[in-house]
Design a protein around this nucleic acid. Sequence first.
DNA 1: TCAAACATCCAAAGCGCTTTGAACACTGGG
DNA 2: CCCAGTGTTCAAAGCGCTTTGGATGTTTGA
Lengths: 341, 341
Amino acid sequence: MNLKELAEELHLSQTTVSRALNGYPEVSEKTREIVLAAAQRFGYRPSPAARRLATGRAHALGVVFNAERNALMDPLFVEYLAGVAEVSAKQGFDILISPSTPRDEIATFGRLARDGTVDVVILSAPLIVDARISLLSELKFPFVVHGRPPEPAGVSYIDIDNFGAFQQATSFLIQLGHRRITLINGEEHFTFAQDRSHGAAIAFAAAGLPKNMLEEHFMPMTAENAYRCARQALESDERPTAFLCGSILVALGVLRAAAELGLDVPRDLSIIAHDDEMPAFPADQFHPQLTTTRSSIRAAGTRVAEMALARVAGQKPGTVADVWPVQLIVRGSTAAAPERG
Amino acid sequence: MNLKELAEELHLSQTTVSRALNGYPEVSEKTREIVLAAAQRFGYRPSPAARRLATGRAHALGVVFNAERNALMDPLFVEYLAGVAEVSAKQGFDILISPSTPRDEIATFGRLARDGTVDVVILSAPLIVDARISLLSELKFPFVVHGRPPEPAGVSYIDIDNFGAFQQATSFLIQLGHRRITLINGEEHFTFAQDRSHGAAIAFAAAGLPKNMLEEHFMPMTAENAYRCARQALESDERPTAFLCGSILVALGVLRAAAELGLDVPRDLSIIAHDDEMPAFPADQFHPQLTTTRSSIRAAGTRVAEMALARVAGQKPGTVADVWPVQLIVRGSTAAAPERG
DNA sequence: TCAAACATCCAAAGCGCTTTGAACACTGGG
DNA sequence: CCCAGTGTTCAAAGCGCTTTGGATGTTTGA
């Protein structure tokens, strides 16, 4: 059943029925009720395609899915998506996943913006120099960012306090007596990796420790990369007594390296990992249970979706700039630094 | 630039331009070339919304995202989605993610089918009694299934040989001398869980072993559930010498339980896990490296997307019924059963 | 009492595409 | 020279909604 038929059924015009359904004021309450009841009774649902064509608005929200990047390192993505989905479902918004490779990512964004298949896009993991942000800004296409944009002015975003988290975690390790610490970070072109790096560096500086005691590696945060890196670090002459890990997956790799080398965690080696709360990999299900800096990626997903919808509803960009605190949760993977041998 | 403007620019009718662009035969090659060139030059892109309204086809493919189920146990989902995305991107199809909870999943499917926002839906993890399949069949809405449908007749699907995989894995353990084996399976209403269960049971029967030596547990396949289950099994009087795990995550939980109880893998305990090839969690990055039954969930994603697109192109349902073989990869988590003590 | 203001409702014009049914020009066979 | 057949193009009618610009009563203020 379409609008025309419904209108005929009610002996009303399409205009009135449409307005009644969409809550416009220029229709009396009586008729609105009648219309609403009839729509319900006949199971009328407006055609999204027609509405889209008529209004120019898609009632959809775009998420660019970088197949290579996400598949490689992001079981997180599901959690994030679940958060986004939860909110957008409530508002009746569709979620369009646009796949892309790193190479054609820009083109994908351009297409999304021009085609009008979505009203707003959500952009994740911003880079130090981010062509996607430049492009969307230039096209004046609505977008919101999950993570800290390189130029936050005029951009709505939500981020977790990566700086604070790693500063706190590093300070904690230093207090425990650790001096040689290895940070296994994400790739350095991500803003979050920079923030974490700064956090750790500041903690060292604050403790009056030389910065070369902090060994830092930037890489895609997979278990395997982490394993290789940790293995190499642990077999070197001056091996670290503690690791800071960018994710739970990284911690997994480090744990394996430690196990293979017969090192006990936390006796010989302390580990702190950042935990985005993947339900599939709870930090407290590891052995030993992991000390973490914790923040919910899912909650971030819901928040960023809310922001996106607000943006569609007309909110100005740059209105929101949330930075969420990150909590240090001490569990069994950290202990006082071993005596120097 | 829209079609009308482009047509005026070319001094042609919209009809001709539209047909030239869409490859219809009733337009001469010369004009087609001219039109194509002009479209290119002006950067003309047809409006998806208008096309959708006019044709009734959405050029989109729907994936229902069961937020609770997926978020809980499926980092796999990302890999799967990557596979789907890869194929659909090539054909210019959008992917629409429809979130739902288990409660409103049926309604979500109904809406998808009626709204015309997608041309076909992909359905994952079919159940023994699956209302989604019934609904879509009844509505005569195109769909394809990832997994074995309860009533395969007239349904296009692709599945991995869960039966064969678990039969093979179980036989292998039996050959190694294991007699008490615990299978940590997915929830029993899934067809895949049934198939795995049967595979293991048949292997026991074939070896002439009583079926009560196979202890089986059905549950959501999380590390934590697996941990609890394994812990309980390992502390019982007649503890198993081997575990069959429904996923890598399950294996993680079992490994933890073993570690806490001071059991060495594979000396005291053998483990085989089914591996869907999550790049984030390679089975060979565990300690010890895991013996697995392996199949690529990503490849399944690409295949099921191809099927979905074929279905849209007019292929009859039930045409495809792929069952992919699963390979047993022997690594370090399996060994001969320990001597009875 | 009349004009102005308001509250309701409507007809019709889009939105940008596809597709039907027809027109037109050009060929070759009779 | 005419007609059927073919190849090429077009005008116009949708697709199902929103929205503009009235039209039609109904009140209100002076």
